[in-house]
């Protein structure tokens, strides 16, 4: 900090007196007290309400806290800084810089939202995965994309993720979403018979989008044979029911065929 800046700061804060300092301390203490009270009593009050009113009351807590802090800051500034034009310009400049840093990501998300609207990495109805969160796109807002996970949890993901995250889109604006059911079988079996059977399991599923291909992939693994049954459901929203149906019926048919399933060998008990 050079000499000029030091002098400016000294001039800005030069009129601070002991009384002012006491007032500031009281304001800070009052603010803390008010915040503590709202955080304690509003949730208690909300607990006595039901339904939507309870949620409104709980939402008041952070809003009130923001109002209290804003009021306190204004009261303190009024006492600390002499309200001249130069002081106000300097203050607003510093404030603008702070807000700019704080809202960098916000603005970035807004711009990414505009980019997403024409690049279309996701659309409403798409099943996407961003940074490990998988779900159906419900809405694309200005700043965020809103997805609902299979556990019925709504996730708001900022658009700025498109700058540096991989966006996995399972159906990419279409009704075609590939589902995979896995079967792990004991290696001693007739693979051709199993391939045909699993194909028919998919073909006879009411969930199947029949005009899309059905594929059965077999891979030999150290513990047995791994079969991937790949097919498309009629509606992407049925993907979990579809995989369940393939698994349940596939398992039943394989058991009827007399095929054994692969099992992890038991770990030897070191004590024995």
């Amino acid at each position: 900090m050079n000499n000029d800046q030091t002098e400016n700061l000294a001039a800005l804060l030069g009129h601070l007196t002991e009384t002012t300092i006491v007032q500031i301390v009281l304001i800070v203490a009052g603010t803390w007290l008010l915040i503590a009270l709202t955080q304690r009593f509003l949730p208690m009050l909300a607990g006595k309400l039901a339904g939507r009113n309870r949620l409104y009351m709980l939402a008041l807590v952070p809003a009130l806290r923001l109002c209290i802090i804003t009021g306190a800051v204004l009261l303190i500034l009024q006492r600390v800084i002499e309200p001249t034009l130069e002081n106000l310009v300097g203050l607003l400049g510093a404030l603008g810089l702070a807000v700019g840093f704080a809202s960098k990501d916000y603005v970035s998300s807004l711009i990414a939202g505009v980019v997403a609207s024409y690049e279309m990495p996701y659309r409403p109805g798409d099943w996407i995965e961003i940074d490990g969160t998988y779900g159906e796109v419900q809405a694309i807002r200005l700043r965020t994309v809103e997805i609902v996970t299979p556990d019925d949890t709504v996730a708001h993901i900022p658009h700025l993720q498109i700058w540096n995250q991989t966006i996995l889109n399972a159906n990419d604006g279409s009704q075609h979403l590939l589902c995979v059911a896995n079967f792990y079988l004991h290696p001693r079996h007739n693979a051709v018979q199993v391939l045909k059977l699993l194909h028919d399991v998919a073909l006879t599923s009411p969930f199947l989008q029949i005009e899309r291909p059905i594929n059965v992939i077999a891979q030999e693994k150290p513990f047995g044979t791994h079969y991937c049954l790949k097919a498309y459901p009629i509606d992407p929203r049925q993907q979990f029911h579809f995989v369940t149906d393939l698994t349940v019926r596939g398992k039943a048919m394989l058991l009827q065929l007399g095929v054994e399933f692969a099992t992890t060998p038991a770990i030897a008990d070191p004590a024995s």
């Binding site: 059977l197 028919d200 399991v201 073909l203 006879t204 009411p206 019926r249 048919m253």
Partner: peptide, 9 residues
């Protein structure tokens, strides 16, 4: 002569 079942085809 058929059923939409893995054993029906």
């Amino acid at each position: 002569c058929y059923l939409r079942h893995a054993h029906g085809l």
